[in-house]
């Protein structure tokens, strides 16, 4: 199958800091690529270069076979690359609806009298959130009042609604409890089954292993290689990550989730 997005030999420097060096990764349709690595390994930097926040100093980005340069996050969005950042890019003082449509508000009316169609926006936001099991009774409620998992789901469903082809998720489960993390992971698997390419960033092997198809491991700005799931046992993955602890119970639960979401 053709690669949805490729990046070849990407390097990124911040002054004297080498944040990334010669990182290569390919993602296909329906694939969940997990990007793993310790704190400061360069995961966030890598996806920021992919989503137009940073420009790479070296290397090339190829989207659906075409070499591409992103000048701004908007460029990447327009190419169908949607990123859910570690900080989610949600404004907690603003309502669910206003956040959902931030930057892409539905409009009605003509010419200079075009207005933000709040009614339509409210109903779409409620409907979309309802589909992932979050019942928004009042879409004008501030996002600041939502739980971490609900915010994560809001950010993901916003990305999918706006026609993402590649969905990049930076540590979507890091701040969540087991239950909420499983809700988010299920949603990610669902998104991939619809044909999106997913890049999932985490440093939690127990979240990554059950849902991922391929694994790329970053260490101090360099890629230690990409591995298919069949070539890589969970133990091996754990040992490649520094300090992998045993969390068997969680592992079992996540396997169940995996099974449940695949049928």
């Amino acid at each position: 199958m053709e690669n949805l997005i490729e990046f070849n030999n990407i390097s990124k420097f911040f002054g004297s800091v080498i944040a990334l060096k010669d990182v290569t990764m390919h993602v296909k349709k329906g694939q969940i690529m997990c990007l793993l690595g310790d704190n400061g390994a360069g995961k966030s930097t890598l996806i920021k270069t992919l989503s137009g926040v940073h420009k790479p100093n070296e290397g090339e980005i190829i989207v659906e076979g075409k070499k591409t340069v992103f000048d701004s996050p908007r460029d990447a969005l327009d190419m169908g690359i949607a990123t859910v950042y570690q900080d989610l890019a949600l404004v907690s003082l603003m309502s669910v609806t206003r956040n959902f449509f931030m930057g892409r508000e539905p409009m009605k009316g003509f010419g200079p009298f075009k207005t933000f169609d709040v009614k339509k926006a409210n109903s779409i936001a409620s409907e979309r959130m309802g589909q992932i099991g979050i019942d928004i009774r009042d879409p004008s409620q501030a996002v600041g009042t939502m739980s971490g998992g609900e915010r994560q789901c809001l950010a993901i469903s916003r990305a999918i609604y706006f026609g993402a082809k590649v969905l990049i998720l930076d540590e979507p489960t890091s701040a969540l409890g087991v239950h909420q993390a499983s809700v988010v992971l299920k949603y990610i698997v669902k998104a991939a089954s619809l044909g999106l390419g997913v890049i999932l960033i985490t440093h939690n092997v127990h979240h990554a292993y059950p849902v991922g198809n391929s694994f790329t491991i970053l260490n101090r700005g360099k890629s230690m290689g990409t591995f298919d799931k069949k070539d890589l046992s969970r133990e091996k993955l754990l040992s490649m990550m520094a300090g992998g602890e045993e969390l068997d119970k969680l592992e079992v639960e996540l396997k169940e989730i995996d099974r449940a979401s695949k049928n």
Binding site: V53, A89, V91, M102, G103
Partner: peptide, 15 residues
Amino acid sequence: FASGGDKLGARNVGV
């Protein structure tokens, strides 16, 4: 609202 609420977040989603 978005620019004042969180300017990085707003920029990242295309505002």
